[in-house]
Design a protein around this nucleic acid. Structure first.
Lengths: 347, 347
DNA sequence: TGTTAGCACTCACCTCAGTAGAGTGCTAAT
DNA sequence: ATTAGCACTCTACTGAGGTGAGTGCTAACA
């Protein structure tokens, strides 16, 4: 059953009032603040109907109305209008992001900072999933008699290294040879495949010493691959939730903080969400049933996908937050595409 | 004026009771639980004297006594006995730390985890200050037409790298030449000196192209040096404070979390503290005047110094926590020395 | 038939008084 | 010097009464 025009107006009024003041909204205050041309009594009747339909709830008999998850869902789907970012916010974003264009992780971290600074909510940003990245080359370098550096370079420019303490002696030549061997072996394979796929048996291991060296390098090689595959999670503004009336109880706050403390689980959950701007409200979430979670995706090279997100009470400024997130992800994707574009263009 | 034997006994009893139960301690309960051979009335008189001397306070007239910062200080300095770690905890520590011996940062992070798991307090651990580390070599490596990797290796095995997008074209030869030039230039200099010291003017820059390449690499070189100098801070168990009665107020909890959110400031403050196990109680702290902060230092190669720490209410089990921290830092130092020792020994 | 005024009713919230209980501080006896 | 005894203090809890915001219903109105 569809809502009448007036019911929509009233619902919208209740939502915006509640979002603003965090207190149940009464019929009289709606009638006064929003010029609907009807008396409080009429509004009361409509409210009663809206409650029956599940759009409003009632903390107790003599309290005003509060929008339900269903109301926010309706608002987000049908009522919400796109909001333009303020020039100030746009400038802030552009400045901050361009300051660290080359440094991948720093840019992502800045995105998380910007999100929480502008929305005053808890926010996060994660580095892209690089399962699809392929190995460009592998290099082993000497440091001292027993110490070498293992370096894996992906074709996206993604680089990771570890320092190894070898138990067997090595020569510079053997390191170079092994580097070449491993590069031939792994070049072009995706990280995921390199980690999980079968290990191709030693290519040209006539030399006993080389085989030994390889044996002591492989465990670290695998560990380093794993590390490359790891998504880095940056969180900001966690303490913002303390300012929200909904979280004035210590138990609520604790639950909230603990959810973030379990980083791996949290990361996995976020990666499971669809691409684009996704809003899940209250009960629509697995956990955090009194929160709204908004995530959005950015792209690197058009392929790799990373996520940013915001978490707050269901009572939030959906229009402003979604606009901000769209702007931010566009900016990020642009940023990460442009650098490559430039390179290719001038080549 | 010194305290009598009996006063010390009473004070100790009050402290251990209060540490256990977090509630003001009355004269009657002391008389019952601890066999001091005197009546509550006598204890009351002594308590009154102790209060006059500043060792106890009184939330209100009809409440029991609570130890003051001064009391804890006395306890820590004179009364506290060394406590042995349980075999279980020792095993836990040894297992966890040895699992990641090669990976520096992972080991430090595990140390923070162990601290908070065992003490149920908020804890942190930071990677060592490497100002004194010297540069071993610098290497530039090609990735693709416009992308190169800059890698700086310290003599402690500390390695950092960045990916650069060059605006000028390069040749493999020029990269190698520049690597050599820069290595000659910076080899043996401390990171701190390399970053802050004067830039030695181009060594052998007859070739125009090399000078240009150098120009576009230097900013990133400096940024990477800075990154190497950065101390990494790992924090664990922040949510533990929610379980502590002292922090049941949301404002307290917020202040606490915010202090940790300002990582840079926090890191700086911790680094300013003396070496060894340092305990600062309540008012002795700059901020967090109702907390006790305990820090301890571990060593890498006998030179570089890193810190671990625990933060909780002044009401904490000082004996257990300090023993744990001593054990943990010894283990860390041992860990980080042994690997080198082994190398040198077998060389 | 939709809208509105009026009014009784509900319920959270605040305040206040009264009570119980823990613990002190003082005094006088040992 | 120590202790028993007792008055006193102060918090925490409880229940009663008052207040005000807001509803829900009814009857009158356009």
């Amino acid at each position: 059953m569809d809502l009448s025009e007036r019911q929509l107006q009233i619902l919208q009024a209740i939502i915006s009032d509640y979002v603003e003041n965090a207190e149940p909204v009464g019929s009289r205050s709606i009638a006064k603040k929003y010029d609907l041309g009807v008396s409080p009594a009429t509004i009361r009747n409509e409210m009663s109907d809206l409650e029956e339909m599940g759009y409003l709830t009632h903390p107790h008999t003599s309290a005003g109305r509060v929008p339900s998850d269903k109301a926010y869902r309706l608002y987000v789907n049908d009522l919400m209008k796109k909001k333009n970012l303020s020039a100030r916010d746009k400038r802030l974003i552009n400045d901050r992001l361009s300051a660290s264009r080359d440094e991948f992780d720093a840019t992502i971290r800045h995105a998380a900072e910007l999100l929480s600074e502008i929305t005053h909510l808890a926010s996060f940003a994660m580095t892209p999933v690089v399962n699809e990245d392929t190995i460009a080359f592998i290099r082993l370098m000497p440091v001292d008699a027993r110490t070498i550096i293992l370096m894996i370079v992906g074709n996206s420019g993604n680089v990771t290294n570890t320092t190894l303490r070898l138990k067997v002696p090595y020569t510079t030549e053997s390191l170079e040879l092994l580097s070449k061997n491993m590069t031939v072996e792994y070049n072009g394979r995706t990280l995921d495949d390199a980690l999980k796929g079968e290990i191709i048996e030693d290519v040209g291991t006539d030399i006993e010493a080389l085989s030994q060296l390889r044996g002591s390098v492989m465990p670290s090689f695998m560990k380093t691959l794993e590390d490359m595959l790891n998504v880095h999670l940056y969180m900001e503004g966690m303490t913002n939730i303390f300012n929200i009336p909904e979280y004035s109880s210590i138990d609520r706050a604790r639950d909230f903080m603990e959810m973030f403390a379990r980083k791996d689980e949290f990361t996995r959950k976020m990666l499971d969400r669809d691409d684009g701007v996704v809003i899940t409200i209250g009960e629509e979430n697995d956990s955090m049933k009194d929160c709204t979670l908004i995530t959005a995706t950015y792209h690197v090279d058009g392929k790799m996908v990373g996520k940013i997100g915001v978490i707050g009470p269901t009572r939030m400024k959906y229009d402003e937050v979604t606009s901000l997130m769209e702007y931010l992800t566009n900016n990020l994707s642009e940023s990460f595409r442009l650098t490559d574009g430039k390179d290719d263009g001038r080549k």
